[in-house]
Amino acid sequence: MTGARMSTLARLRRDIGHIEGDAGEALPRAPLGHAEADATLQGGLAKGAVHEVFAEGRQSAAATGFIAGLAQRVIARRPLLWVRQDFSERENGALSMSGWRELGLDPRLLVTVRAPDVETALQVTADALACDALGGVVMEIWGETRQFDLVASRKLTLAARGSGVTGLLLRVAAAPSPSTAETRWIVRAARSPPAAPWQAWGAPVLDAHLVRNRHGQTGRWIMEWNCDECLFRDVPFHGAEAHPQPVAAAPADRSHQAPVVMPNITPWRRTG
């Protein structure tokens, strides 16, 4: 491609960006804590934008944990509105505040809206995204829906941009479709890293696949939610032999460094 054509392309992209009022580069970001993911996201998850998390029906809890973690990172001690469809609760279980607390999150900041259907959920979410008293809004809907099209998605994006509230969409048992989301993730649970029998296991370990990123590259990481520090971490002892499940190839443009973690002394697990 010649230089002239490249510059034309760049100019056109910039123009379109202007028309769309795109401020993707300038959005404030909330670091996730996972170094590689933060680097790919150019500093963290963009606030005042909409992010989508997709999961298979069986992986709903992992995706819920992931989105709860993302929400915790972006809300900065402000209230979180969780809008969920009735059917989703029947299918995946209700959010349990004991479990919420155990992830290191604060149930006092959570307000739940039980929407009877997708349409109501969308209306409430759009309204809530425009309210800057909130730190974030999670919309949880189950299955494929006609109602959530590009227009609805754009409405949410504009509302989020106007107020600076972050929108997180949890789509369980749905296939990704075109939307105006800033990032799109596909999340599944990953196995706990091997550990000594007496050591604690079962912290949320997630296989997070960033499949779309409007302002950067994509990637796939195995990350762990650290319940004490409330951030995502690389999984210690994580290696190919420990995780025989498929892991995406390392990005071609930089060498993939397997984290070398010294097996430092892990505190013995308390009993009782």
């Binding site: 809890a61 819920t64 279980g93 209700a94 349990s96 607390r101 155990e102 604690a200 949320p204 697990r269």
Partner: peptide
Amino acid sequence: AEPPLRPLRL
């Protein structure tokens, strides 16, 4: 330093 002992979805 404990993993979650109660589930997130009940």
